[in-house]
Amino acid sequence: MIQRGSSLIDGAFVVCTAFDAADFTAVLCGGSAATFYAPEAYMSADDDFVLTVELPRREISAIMAPLGFRESGRIYVHDAVVWTVDFPRGPLAIGRDIVTTWATERRGAEILHVISPTDSVRDRFMHYFAWNDYSGLTQAVAVARAQRERVDLDAFRAWAETELRETPAYESRRVEAFFKALHEA
């Protein structure tokens, strides 16, 4: 149940559990996944869920309404909390990679599907890769530091090299900047 003081991550568990109960899979991604993995370093303002099957808006609303959420433009808002919920269009992908596996966390009877720590690093880094967005770099580094044991840096580098080959606008110095920042910790 969402109530005053419920955190972004509390809400993520509630929403994901509701979709799970309706036999749909909603995967937490974007900045909210980074907040899940590195709450001390980064606080997102909304829960981003990608659904593994595309649902009409009215079906999403039918699942969200009993939780107290109502549609406000593209997003869902709740009177008790300031954070919002968004359902970006799928497929779940990071750069050219379509993501088909994710982590599943449990908290009592609640469930949360969330992109893996490695994918969260890749997802945040994409903003730096594509737009030179320095905040994306800092978030990627924060997740990699907070989840040091779970992030596969070799996989990250291999993926980055593939993206560099496929997207000429990307620059390899940004990959090196990530590793430099990570090792400066």
Binding site: G95, R96, D97, I98, H127, A130, T167, A169
Partner: peptide, 20 residues
Amino acid sequence: SRLVGRTRLVELDPRWYAAA
């Protein structure tokens, strides 16, 4: 699209999975 100063710039999103 992203704001640069007071101007919203629009471009093809290179992060999209089928962008290339």
